[in-house]
Nucleic acid binder design. Sequence first.
RNA 1: GCGGUAUUGGCGAAGUGGUUAACGCACCGGAUUGUGGUUCCGGCACGCGUGGGUUCGAUUCCCACAUACCGCCCCA
Length: 425
Amino acid sequence: MRYQRPKGTADILPGDSEKWQYVEETARQVFKTYQFKEIRTPLFENFEVFSRSAGDTSDIVTKEMYDFHDKGDRHITLRPEGTAGVVRAFVENKLYGPQVLKPYKVYYMGPMYRYERPQSGRLREFHQLGVEAFGSESAALDVEVIAMGYNLLNKFGLADLKLVINTLGDQQTRDDYRQALIDYLEPHFEELSDDSKERLHKNPLRVLDSKAPEDQKFVEAAPSILDYLSDDAKTHFEQTKTYLEALEIPYEIDATMVRGLDYYNHTIFEIMTNSRALGQGYTTICAGGRYNGLVKELGGPEVSGVGFGLGVERLLVLMDAEGVEVPMDNQLDVYVVGIGDTASATTLKLAQALRTAGFTAERDYLDRKPKAQFKSADRLNARYTMTVGEAEIEGQVVNLKEMATGNETQVAMADVYKNAKQVIK
RNA sequence: GCGGUAUUGGCGAAGUGGUUAACGCACCGGAUUGUGGUUCCGGCACGCGUGGGUUCGAUUCCCACAUACCGCCCCA
């Protein structure tokens, strides 16, 4: 085998592509009911768009970016996530302007790129569905975004979902908490894992996310960010909880939950599932939160945002594992069987007429015998076969067979051409 | 970036340092001439991921590389 696809990429073939279409269509439907509109942004952006937004110390920027210099020596990055590009577009197109209705609500779906070691449901080219809403600081918008994600996953037939929320507060909260965390961890510095030693000063919140056993006991006893919330941050979080309760969406609070991207503040959330398909215990399928400083960070005014991203490959792995039935339209209306060398033009015309009338139709292109053609018709799940040989051409009729019953009737060719809908029910 | 396992026909899968690489599915052909889903018969890898090496001889042993999967890191 000479060529193979690049590491960490996948071909999505018929049989699977239907599932993708189902996921995308369902998402579009749901997003529409919440009045989110589609936005399409480039697959690549200037490197700085991502390095500024994700944070220079984040793993995404430091080791997972697919970046290169193009022929004009521009530093280009294949987008590793959706939010930064959308925010860039929001700023560049001045969508914060007074003439644009607020909040400005958009969704996107498409490929993302991360230079990672591939695993099940984790590819280098992967796909995300995501939404972003700009221009309102109301916790009601946080909850709308969460509810929409939750709803969507429900629509996909996933049970056993768990919503986990936390707050990272505002800048004041973060500064205070960061200091408290450093003060708490500093005396134990030598006992921490090597990774966490590294994290402590760069991004101490990430220590909370450590899975290293030697860190666990410190994480457990660590001060909680919930005790450091400013009044504003507290109010926002309380409202978020109130609204979630109003919608009767069950949730848990995990005060140690953090995010891989630095731009989040206030509400962050993950929708998790207990399916074993993605490994042991609960794993995250949909994650997001609020990012109030990001628009400004990318050169816009002080406009807030909130959104989520959802990994399509992971979703499909889950749906498969949970036995979710994707509706597939595998019916063929008519298979036109041609017998003998002279029938080809006629079967072509018949198939064409049926298709024009809106039916699905197929015929043989390999000069195979009737028996083989009937076999194909069967494989294709044909409702009818329409047989044409010399005798039929002679009489200008076709032999119509209903496959389920085996009943055969003769129909005038002219009727197929003119009133296909009368012939095929 | 680190560690482990794997790689045999379109697919699933057995197998051995030596001469014809099981079996199943799928596919193709046939069982009297123009009709399907069952059955029967026949066909279907000059080749065992790629490149080196060891050996009289390797698909089977060794090395490198590639890819996949699992774990770590991280995350969707």
